[in-house]
Write a protein that binds this DNA or RNA. Sequence first.
DNA 1: TAACGATTTTGACTTTTGTCAAATAATCAA
DNA 2: TTGATTATTTGACAAAAGTCAAAATCGTTA
Lengths: 187, 187
Amino acid sequence: MKIDENIARHYNLTEEDIALTMSGYVPMKLKANDFFLQEGEVADYIGFVTKGLLRSYVYDDFANEITSDFFPENTLIISFDSFNNRVPAKEYIKAIEDSELMVISYEKQKELYQKIPAWNLICRDLADYKSREMIERAKKFQMMSATERYQNFCTEHPDLLQRTTLGTIASYIGVDIATLSRIRKKI
Amino acid sequence: MKIDENIARHYNLTEEDIALTMSGYVPMKLKANDFFLQEGEVADYIGFVTKGLLRSYVYDDFANEITSDFFPENTLIISFDSFNNRVPAKEYIKAIEDSELMVISYEKQKELYQKIPAWNLICRDLADYKSREMIERAKKFQMMSATERYQNFCTEHPDLLQRTTLGTIASYIGVDIATLSRIRKKI
DNA sequence: TAACGATTTTGACTTTTGTCAAATAATCAA
DNA sequence: TTGATTATTTGACAAAAGTCAAAATCGTTA
């Protein structure tokens, strides 16, 4: 969602387009454990993480927090479902570390969609990218053992190992925390 | 991708828009076991299944076919990745039953994107929908046991139980076929 | 620094799932 | 209809993963 030169060029954004886009974004600061979004709310903002780390999660039947995604710096937080369709969010999004974002409100984003047609295209491609990411994630569960999923996590997110708890990672890769502890010892 | 009245109204498509869209689509017939797309090819078509059933799959390290998705009638086959970005497909898409589709070529679809801006919006929403579907799929692996995944499959796709093999379903829900056979007996 | 809480590890055990091979059952084409 | 092929079930066993509870470790703050 950050408009860097490559994106601007790729989608043929004019200087005015970029200026208008920039004017819609505002900074947001969150302390660790602050919510960016809570289950049941309609997402008011989507945005880009410039600093820090957030995670999204849901609760399972036993009231355990199941982490569904991590948002470190330079990633987008696009709960398009809730944001675009104005429906209640199914997940919580909470800061793990003190974080800084650039966010845009629904009203402003709607303005961008209308005034800058390329924005529909950008968001189409973003949603497409997201869906491919999720296809890959599902495929990992489908085809990898718990050990392989952990190893894959380590290579894909080496930094997160230091920045969040084992329990959070365990729920993200769908493994019991005691089992994950043993997997780590074994490797 | 089928332009029914609701879609036309929702996206404010004019009569001409609809006529132009329709003119881009052509029927395609596939016999059982024919490929709609093969790994390594760039997707020439996206389309809508009007009759029959297809599936997408990849190969794992042991040359087993791992089914990633089913496409029964009234579903879209949108390998947006390969289609939009002109990159080689990662999966095979093959007809399980004799099938009929309405498909559109890349060139024609590009024309629609340009001449009918709403098409970018439609595809944005389709990609968004797809990403949510995949998020749900990943979440099922993350939070459900093999038995629960099978039960969920039965309620979500009751018809497919009759229309494809156990082995195909087993790979789709990520369970060994012998295990799935036992799960079925137990239930 | 001591003490508290949260996180991680460990032990002993159970349950779930996978593996391999053989036996049935079902399907399809000659 | 009959083989041949493919799909499914079953048995015996092994490996992977989960459960529960206790211990060890770590980090924070009073």
